[in-house]
């Protein structure tokens, strides 16, 4: 229990740190009014907007106001679209969820069994092939893979649309691109986790008892290998948000990754801030959930902390 509480406290602290960093970073970079009205304003208008956004107060007061706004669900207005950032994100969130969710599940459904297979059947030719694919998927940057896929399937074979997010067909290539890297990661990780467990004494004991190989693998080896595998999946959420940004950019898929990049390029800080804060929250939550699952799967963690 102590372990969980410590983790929660740490997650909250990390979150506060992220929000603080984001707030001060965007204040260093200059006055949002200058970014909103690049042509310049008369002093009265300037004073009005300064008062409207609360920029005439001290940094610390602004910071407190910003925090209060966050807690009340007020994340500010987009400087380029003049509407609440939450509204803009709500429109685009489903696209990213479809993309990341389907890629995650696909990578899990393919990668996990292949990884286990590769660990159990070490010296078969199929294993060599699997590991070669895994190596390639791991090595190739996903936007490069995306470019090859677009060339082959869109412009050469004319099978798939090269960009956009109108129908489910548009999601096929982005999902496969993203899933490729995650799958490769899953295969490599699952295999090494399984191999380690298969070398343990208790696996030999299970075999010596005369248990069937299926039982040895599923009940004795896999259950123990699941602990590192699950924690790896949590880290995957953290590692692959950066990849989502790239995949969305290549395929011009209107998700929140592309939105954040646009926010950075146009210096639309409200959009950028919200994106970073939400994404950080997702990552931190994912890590926290992994810790919870950890304690469920492995009683030793509960005791030792």
């Amino acid at each position: 229990m102590n372990f969980i509480i410590m983790r929660v406290v740490r997650a909250v602290l990390t979150m506060v740190l992220v929000v603080t960093a984001v707030f001060f970073a965007s204040r260093i970079s200059g006055n949002p009014i200058d970014i909103m009205f690049p042509e310049g304003l008369s002093p009265e208008e300037y004073a009005f907007w300064e008062n409207y956004f609360g920029l005439d107060k001290s940094y610390f007061q602004q910071y407190l106001a910003y925090f209060r706004g966050l807690i009340q669900g007020n994340f500010g207005l987009s400087l380029t679209e003049f509407r609440p950032v939450t509204e803009i994100y709500a429109e685009r969130l489903p696209n990213t969820i479809y993309l990341f969710g389907s890629a995650f599940l696909l990578a899990l459904a393919v990668g996990l069994p292949l990884g286990i297979y590769a660990a159990v059947n070490r010296d078969k030719p199929i294993t060599t092939a699997i590991m070669a694919v895994a190596f390639f998927g791991y090595a190739i940057p996903n936007y490069i893979l995306a470019i090859f896929m677009i060339l082959i399937f869109s412009f050469w074979l004319h099978l798939m649309p090269s960009s956009g997010n109108m129908t489910w067909v548009h999601f096929v290539m982005p999902t496969v691109t993203l899933a490729m890297a995650m799958m490769a990661w899953n295969i490599r990780f699952t295999r090494s986790a399984m191999l380690e467990i298969l070398n343990e004494d208790f696996v030999r004991t299970a075999r010596a008892k005369g248990l069937r190989e299926v039982v040895v693998i599923n009940k004795h080896a896999l259950r123990n290998a699941m602990i590192p595998i699950v924690s790896n999946l949590g880290l995957q959420v953290a590692g692959f948000v950066g990849w989502v940004v790239l995949v969305e950019a290549v395929f011009a898929l209107e998700g929140i990754g592309a939105l954040i990049v646009r926010g950075a390029l146009l210096r639309d800080f409200a959009v950028l801030q919200f994106g970073i804060i939400v994404w950080a929250a997702v990552v931190i939550a994912a890590n926290l959930i992994v810790d919870f699952i950890y304690t469920l799967l492995d009683p030793r963690v509960r005791i030792v902390k």
Partner: peptide, 21 residues
């Protein structure tokens, strides 16, 4: 603790913020 934060936080996002700033 700083190292843990750096590991947990996707660096691409930090880079985006830094570029914007």
């Amino acid at each position: 603790g700083l190292v843990d934060i750096q590991i947990a936080f996707p660096f691409t996002l930090m880079a985006l913020l830094a570029v914007a700033v």
